[in-house]
C-alpha cells in the first residue's frame, strides 16, 4: 500500500500522527496528498477522519507526530508558520459553521485573510464576495444581507464553501460536505466540489461517507479503520481491493446508498 502518490510532490504530509481523547482515535497515521490532486478519505464513523483533517491546520493538536503543509511543519514551525499555513488552506466544515451573528456578506468577508483584507478597498471586498457567491451558484443580490438562520441547509453549505474559497486558498479541506443533504443537493454539492477543484486548481482533501461520489471525483482515496490507515490507492485499486475490510466497507456503504435512494423515492 503506497501512502504517497506519483504526482508533483506532496503538499500535505501526515507523519505518524497519534491522537487519543478518552480512547485512541488516530494510531500512527502516515499519509501524503500530492499537489493538485483530489484525495478522498473514507472510513466508518468515529474512526478519526475529521480529527485527521483538523490536525492539518492545528484545530486539533496530535499527541505525537507532525503534519507538514507545503513543506512547513504545522506543529514545530511556530505561530507565524501556522498563520501562513492557514492562509493557504480553506476549510469547509461539516455543518458549514457559519457565524450566526454575521450576515452572508460578513461571513464571506471573514474568509479573506486579514493581511490581504487590509490592502483591499470596500469595493474590492464586495466584488470578491459577489464573485465567490456566484462561484458556488448562489444569487449574491438575494443572499448577501441574509443571516445564516434564514438560509436552507444547502445554501448554508454553499456559503461555507464560499467563505473557504474567498481567500483564494491553495488547498481545500472538505469535512463531510454532503452530510445532512438530500440526494439532489448532494449531487449539486459534489458537482460543485469537482468544479471548484478544477477551476481553482487547488489541492482537495475530502472526508466523506459517500463512497461512490468520492471514487468518481477523486484521483486517489484512502480508508481509515480503527485509527489506522487501512487502504491508500487509486479508485480502481479500491474497487478491486481484496482486503475483506475494504470490500465490506464498500459494500455496506453501497447498500446504504441504495437504501437511502429507495427511502427518498
Amino acid at each position: 500500500m503506497s501512502v504517497s502518490g506519483n504526482g508533483s510532490g506532496a503538499v500535505i504530509e501526515y507523519q505518524n500522527v497519534y491522537k487519543a481523547f478518552d480512547a485512541p482515535v488516530l494510531s500512527g497515521v502516515t499519509l501524503s496528498v500530492e499537489r493538485g490532486e483530489m484525495f478522498a478519505l473514507f472510513g466508518p464513523s468515529g474512526t478519526g477522519k475529521s480529527v485527521l483533517l483538523k490536525t492539518t491546520i492545528a484545530l486539533v493538536t496530535p499527541d505525537r507526530g507532525d503534519v507538514t503543509v507545503a513543506g512547513e511543519s504545522v506543529y514545530f514551525g511556530g505561530r507565524d508558520v501556522l498563520e501562513r499555513i492557514r492562509r493557504k488552506v480553506g476549510y469547509v466544515f461539516q455543518y458549514a459553521a457559519l457565524f450566526d451573528s454575521l450576515n452572508v456578506y460578513e461571513n464571506v468577508e471573514i474568509g479573506i485573510p486579514e493581511t490581504i483584507l487590509k490592502g483591499m478597498s470596500q469595493k474590492e471586498v464586495a466584488h470578491r464576495a459577489w464573485e465567490v457567491l456566484e462561484l458556488v451558484n448562489l444569487e449574491p443580490q438575494q443572499v448577501l444581507g441574509m443571516l445564516p438562520s434564514e438560509l436552507s441547509g444547502g445554501m448554508k453549505k454553499r456559503v461555507g464553501i464560499a467563505r473557504a474559497v474567498a481567500g483564494h486558498p491553495e488547498i481545500l479541506l472538505w469535512d463531510e460536505p454532503i452530510t445532512g443533504l438530500d440526494p439532489v443537493n448532494t449531487a449539486a454539492i459534489e458537482r460543485l466540489i469537482k468544479q471548484l477543484s478544477d477551476e481553482l486548481k487547488v489541492t482537495s482533501l475530502l472526508v466523506t461517507h459517500d463512497i461512490e461520489g468520492g471514487l468518481d471525483m477523486c484521483d486517489r482515496v484512502a480508508m481509515l479503520e480503527g485509527g489506522h490507515l487501512r487502504f491508500c490507492g487509486s479508485p480502481e485499486e479500491f474497487r478491486m481491493s481484496s482486503d475483506p475490510v475494504v470490500t465490506a466497507f464498500g459494500d455496506r456503504a453501497a447498500a446504504q446508498d441504495a437504501l437511502d435512494t429507495l427511502e427518498i423515492s
Binding site: L59, R86, R87, F93, A97, D100, I110
Partner: peptide, 9 residues
C-alpha cells in the same frame, strides 16, 4: 464556529 474562526486565521 470557533474552529471556523481559527481556520480563517
Amino acid at each position: 464556529q470557533v474552529d471556523a474562526l481559527e481556520s480563517v486565521g
